[in-house]
């Protein structure tokens, strides 16, 4: 069944992207929330870029970057023997870039709101910096993490333009749900398009419903990066 393979691929892509971004975005969001470095606005803007750029533009540049003629693509080819473009690995890399703001922004907002005060209190109580962070900031940022993970996962599942540019349409490798829907419509296979679209709709709604239901403080929005 092509639908099942597309669903599995989308879930795998979104899952891997979310997990990797949790680790990548945490230090970045912490830095954005607390740094007074003069480059901070630039980094902030760069991180938010995928929110406003057409996915095709981003996809185009990534495609160029992934090309074996260029440094990254060339290195990857010589290192692994396969190309980055039109591969699942390439899709993961592209998703990391594309979904970054969806992870970083809620985390930054959460970290700004928490501030440094709990860390300082923990330090005066004898906790080392790492211990202090894990025992105060991490649990205090719980709803920020839930928001960020849900947004990132859902957004990666729904990604289309950039996947088309970077991954193309290879069954079992790069053909995720959104691509499968597009192809079904192109080939006038409306039954399959209906099935996948409705599935995606129900999935998105259920995820949000669960989160809203179990976490009353949860707000799914891309709030301002810094809460006053």
């Amino acid at each position: 069944m092509t639908e099942l393979s597309a669903i599995w691929l989308s879930a795998k892509l979104a899952g891997i992207t979310t997990v990797i971004l949790l680790f990548v975005a945490t230090p970045l969001a912490w830095w954005l929330a607390h740094s007074r470095h003069r480059l901070r606005p630039a980094v902030e803007a760069l991180t938010a870029l995928p929110l406003v750029m057409p996915p095709t533009v981003l996809g185009f540049y990534l495609l160029i970057l992934f090309s074996p003629n260029n440094a990254l693509g060339g290195f990857w080819l010589s290192f692994t023997g396969s190309t980055l473009s039109f591969s699942f690995t390439g899709l993961v890399l592209a998703s990391l870039v594309y979904s970054l703001p969806f992870m970083v922004q809620p985390l930054t907002a959460a970290f700004s709101q928490i501030g440094r005060a709990p860390l300082e209190a923990a330090a005066t109580l004898g906790a080392s910096p790492w211990d202090a962070w894990c025992s105060t900031v991490l649990p205090l940022a719980r709803s920020g993490y839930i928001t960020a993970a849900v947004l990132t996962f859902a957004h990666t599942v729904g990604e289309f333009g950039i996947v088309l540019m970077v991954g193309g349409n290879l069954a079992g490798e790069t053909r995720v749900i959104s691509i499968a829907i597009y192809e079904s419509v192109e080939t006038l296979n409306y039954t399959e398009a209906h099935l996948l679209s409705a599935g995606l709709l129900v999935f998105s709604f259920s995820v949000l419903l669960c989160v809203y239901y179990f976490n009353r403080q949860f707000t799914l929005r891309l709030g301002p990066l810094r809460t006053p």
Partner: peptide
């Protein structure tokens, strides 16, 4: 010496109990 190795107790102006 980092803060956590100084044998101090600190009561901040604003209450700093851990809310969680």
């Amino acid at each position: 010496l980092p803060t956590h190795k100084r044998r101090i107790g600190y009561v901040f102006q604003q209450d700093q109990l851990f809310a969680h």
